[in-house]
Design a protein around this nucleic acid. Structure first.
Length: 419
RNA sequence: GUGAGUGUGGCCCAGAGGCCUAAGGCGCCAGGUUGUGGCCCUGGAUAUCGAGGGUUCGAAUCCCUCCACUCACCCCA
């Protein structure tokens, strides 16, 4: 391994043998989005850093210590996107999508960058599939997005997860709740960890998801946000649960689920695998009714969801879920002699035009070696072309499964369908 | 940021001061009679033993420093 370059820490090559998983996931996602009426959108991998500091929040870990910030040659402060939603909202505003029929439903695949210590299921560059429904406040949409997320995982064959759900209110009712939290926690201050003492001042919500045992004990007894919702949020919350019920969606009411981004309002949810702890969430999302406004748009409610593809692959593997592999060629052409090579090339070209996947053996190898290769790549059939075949204008077609072979006209090969 | 573990050919790994000019398996290449795969057999290529320094007559094996990777914590996907 004395090479000069390697993939930077926290990044990974997705090798050919891995790609089947990725295609499997992407194809499911795309067709699912069509069923739910979402259209695909792509946005740049980097944006003005301010977009994220403003939307994700100054006090969040993502902005504080995980964002890839850099200045370009014109001194613009840019950041590799640390999440997907902010960019989508920026694009929504920039392209006047508020003039489209609402809600505007968008989905995306995006590389996400966060400067973190890598470990299982966590990378500095990872990939998310996400969707956002912008411009409608109804909890129907919350239910639909949640339903879509769950359907997505189920359609992949995953069932080893639970839906964690909570409502964290809005800017009207949250201050009162935060006040309750402070009142509750302040007498307990001495039992809290250092982080939580500062959270008490800066971001009391985050007190709830601290992992330290002593802090957890405190969190168990803490006031619950759903008890302090305002009229509007309370109604929203109740209806959402009704809708979920009518969709037969089970969930775990997790009053300590608060999520790490500042822009969430009302509904928040996370999909958590049964194994792997809380740091291995498959996906998560929630409502962000104030975000578009924070970015300079008129008040526009929205809800979204995102999931990490690496973590899905991890789960597909741990659940031993098989994914289709379409990489095997229908035909491998072995050839010997200059004339045969030219003929092989021509036949392959014609077959591909006819929709048959073909690999032509190139180079100077023995027939034995060529067939070994045919076997290794999993070709269903092999065509052998040598001097005899060149003379007669035929090819020897060999079934790689049974070993049977027969002389056929090149055109016959078009019957071989791609597998 | 913090803590723990690991670093030997493309991959998995043996090896614990001299028998290592480094074993084995997988994979790769070639051959087992002339144009035939998958099994089997034979042969072959590929290792500055993570890097640098030190101890020693002698180090992959001991010590130091650094680097990388992995896992965990924080937090998220």
């Amino acid at each position: 391994m004395g090479y000069v370059f390697k993939a930077p820490r926290g990044t990974a090559d997705i090798l050919p043998e891995e790609q089947a998983y990725w295609r499997y996931i992407e194809e499911k996602a795309v067709s699912l989005c069509r069923w739910y009426g979402f259209s695909m959108i792509s946005t740049p991998a980097f944006e003005d850093a301010g977009l994220f500091t403003r939307s994700v929040g100054e006090g969040t870990d993502i902005v504080n210590k995980e964002m890839y910030i850099f200045k370009d040659r014109s001194d613009n402060e840019l950041a590799l996107r640390p999440e997907g939603t902010a960019s989508i909202c920026r694009s929504y505003l920039e392209h006047g999508m508020d003039n489209l029929p609402q809600p505007v439903k968008l989905f995306y695949f995006a590389d996400i960058f966060r400067y973190e210590r890598p470990q299982a299921g966590r990378y500095r560059q990872h990939h998310q599939f996400g969707c956002e429904a912008i411009g409608e406040a109804s909890p129907m949409l919350d239910a639909e997005v949640i339903h879509m997320a769950l359907t997505f995982f189920k359609s992949l064959g995953l069932s080893n997860f639970s839906l964690q759900l909570n409502s964290i209110g809005c800017k009207k009712c949250r201050p009162a709740y935060l006040e309750q939290l402070r009142e509750y926690y302040t007498p307990l201050k001495d039992q809290l960890c250092g982080d939580c003492r500062t959270r008490l001042e800066k971001n009391p919500l985050r007190l709830l998801d601290c992992k330290k045992p002593t802090c957890q004990v405190a969190a168990d007894e803490s006031p619950q946000s759903t008890e302090y919702l305002c009229e509007d949020c309370g109604q929203h919350w109740e209806s959402l649960m009704e809708y979920l019920k009518s969709l037969s969606i089970e969930f775990v009411l997790n009053h300590r689920l608060v999520r790490g981004l500042d822009y969430y309002t009302k509904t928040v949810f996370e999909i958590q695998p049964f194994e792997g702890g809380s740091q291995s969430a498959l996906g998560g999302g929630g409502r962000y009714d104030d975000l578009i406004g924070m970015l300079g748009g008129k008040p526009t409610p929205a809800i979204g969801f995102a999931t990490g593809l690496e973590r899905i692959v991890l789960n597909l593997k741990s659940q031993s879920i098989e994914v289709p592999n379409n990489n095997k060629p229908a035909l491998f052409i072995a050839c010997m002699g200059d004339q045969a090579k030219a003929a092989a090339l021509k036949i392959a070209a014609d077959l591909r035009e006819a929709g048959v996947s073909v690999i032509v053996s190139a180079g100077e190898r023995s027939l034995k070696a060529q067939l070994r290769h045919a076997n290794a790549v999993g070709a269903a059939s092999a065509a052998i072309i040598g001097d005899d075949e060149v003379k007669s204008g035929t090819v020897m077609l060999r079934n790689m499964e049974t070993g049977e072979q027969q002389e056929v006209q090149p055109d016959e090969l078009k019957k071989l369908s791609a597998t």
